[in-house]
Each structure stands twice: as structure tokens, then as C-alpha cells.
């Protein structure tokens, strides 16, 4: 070794070239192991734990006074708003087959009701120009017209024991349950209108829940039932591993 002065040995005996070779080998092995994988199975517990803690943080952060604000100059998405449903084709309520559509509001309420579209439209109406936040990362500005959720809750005399609410649909078995505070946010509506027109089947006709405080997948389209519950009830995407809370 002393015959080659270019081979440098540090005081503690770590040979530089060995260090480089072994070091880069380890680093590349770690990288290769991690590439496009879901990560080690052993981490699942840790990730679940983090999700529970994040849920607590997010619910603490939630304020009824925090409003979604559309940026000045933002354009409406219009027909660029993507249309998602889980059924193989656009779910359409066939009156000839299923009878007249009605929204059932039940569970922990003093006055369970079945509301036709006309009944919904008689309740106080609001139009919110808000952002749509998709879990994929895109946003879209739209104006949603419908019944403020708080008005609906008052109409059915919400029981204070109701801590969660499940939004169910006729798009196969799609549903998503929410914490009650997000549902009672001022910008949450049961929407039957989009951009000044009646809601179309592509976006959840006859009625859907819409709120900027939840990611897109939490906003159930093609509503059939709104059920108030004492405990959470999962959801179509939540059960497949997306966060149950999905708050924005």
C-alpha cells in the first residue's frame, strides 16, 4: 500500500476507495429496492398510525369560519370538469324503472323525510362559486346551486348525537361518510345545479353533495340517501385505502 502514494488511507483506517465502492453499492441497493414499490410491508402499521394522528390534526385545524376563496381572474372549468363514476356507464335515474327519484334523509334525526327534487328546490337555495379539489391534484372552479346542508339539517331536526353522516348513491354501491362538522360547513350544499343549469348526469344528477372542504371523492354524486350516524361508516374510496377524512 505504501508503494502507491495515490492510495490514501485515513487515520482511522477507512480506505477511501473501499468506502466509495461500498457506500455507493449500499445507496444504489437501497434505491433499487425502493423504486416504484409500495415500500416495505412493515411500514403499513406506521402509515396507519400516521393517518390516525393526521386525522386528529386535521379535525383540530377545521374551522367553520375558514372559507374557500376563488382566486381573482380564475376561469370556470365549464365542460372541462372531469366526470367520474364507478358504474360502467353514466348512472341515470330511470323513472320508468325505479319510480320517481327522491332523497331519503334519515338516521339520527327528529324528522326523517323523503324529498323529491321539487321539495329540495323549495328549501332555501344558495349558489357557491368555489374550487373543486381533486385528490389527484387538479382544481376546477364551478358554481354549485343547491340547499345549504345546514338548512337541510335544520329541516330534518338533526339529533346532537349524530357525529357522522353517510352520503349514499345509486352509482353502484358508492358512498362516503363524513364527520358532521365538515358537513355543517357553510359551503357544503346538496347541489342540483351546476353553472346556472340543472345538474347533468355526468356530474351527479339529480342531486349530489358538494363542498370545497372535502376532496372530490368524498362528494358523493347521484344521491339517494343521507344518513346521520353516531359512528363513521367508511366509504367507497376510503375502504380502498384513500384517507377517510379527505379534508381540504
Amino acid at each position: 500500500m505504501s508503494a502507491n502514494p495515490r492510495r490514501f488511507v485515513s487515520v482511522n483506517g477507512i480506505d477511501r476507495r473501499d468506502f466509495l465502492i461500498r457506500g455507493s453499492g449500499l445507496v444504489s441497493a437501497a434505491f433499487l429496492a425502493a423504486c416504484d414499490s409500495r415500500g416495505p410491508k412493515a411500514a403499513d402499521k406506521l402509515l396507519k398510525y400516521a393517518e390516525r394522528k393526521n386525522l386528529a390534526v386535521e379535525r383540530k385545524l377545521f374551522r367553520h369560519t375558514s372559507m374557500d376563496v376563488v382566486q381573482a381572474g380564475a376561469h370556470e372549468a365549464g365542460n372541462k370538469l372531469p366526470s367520474y363514476y364507478i358504474a360502467p356507464t353514466v348512472p341515470v335515474w330511470e323513472e320508468s324503472v325505479r319510480g320517481k327519484w327522491a332523497l331519503e334523509v334519515s338516521g339520527l334525526v327528529g324528522n326523517p323525510v323523503r324529498l323529491t327534487l321539487a321539495d329540495l328546490q323549495k328549501l332555501p337555495q344558495v349558489s357557491n362559486r368555489v374550487n373543486h379539489y381533486c385528490v389527484e391534484g387538479w382544481t376546477a372552479v364551478e358554481t354549485w346551486t343547491g340547499v345549504p346542508f345546514t338548512e337541510l339539517a335544520r329541516f330534518v331536526r338533526l339529533d346532537p348525537r349524530a357525529r357522522y353522516v353517510d352520503f349514499q348513491s345509486f352509482d353502484d354501491d358508492y358512498h362516503e361518510s363524513w364527520d358532521i362538522e365538515s358537513a355543517m360547513h357553510k359551503q357544503t350544499v346538496v347541489a342540483y345545479g351546476l353553472d346556472g343549469k340543472p345538474l347533468e348526469p355526468a356530474h351527479g344528477a339529480p342531486a349530489r353533495v358538494y363542498s370545497p372542504v372535502k376532496l372530490g371523492y368524498k362528494n358523493t354524486k347521484y344521491l339517494t340517501k343521507i344518513v346521520f350516524m353516531p359512528q363513521m361508516n367508511g366509504g367507497y374510496w376510503s375502504d380502498q385505502g384513500y384517507e377517510w377524512y379527505g379534508g381540504v
Binding site: D36, A50, V135, W237, Y242
Partner: peptide, 17 residues
Amino acid sequence: WLTFGGWLGGARHWHFA
């Protein structure tokens, strides 16, 4: 090959943890 997490939901769990 530059990504991690396998799918959107999994990557979100890793990211938020």
C-alpha cells in the same frame, strides 16, 4: 422509476407520514 409509493393513495400515506 423515480416515484415511490406504488399508487396515489399509498404515496399520499407515505408523504403525509
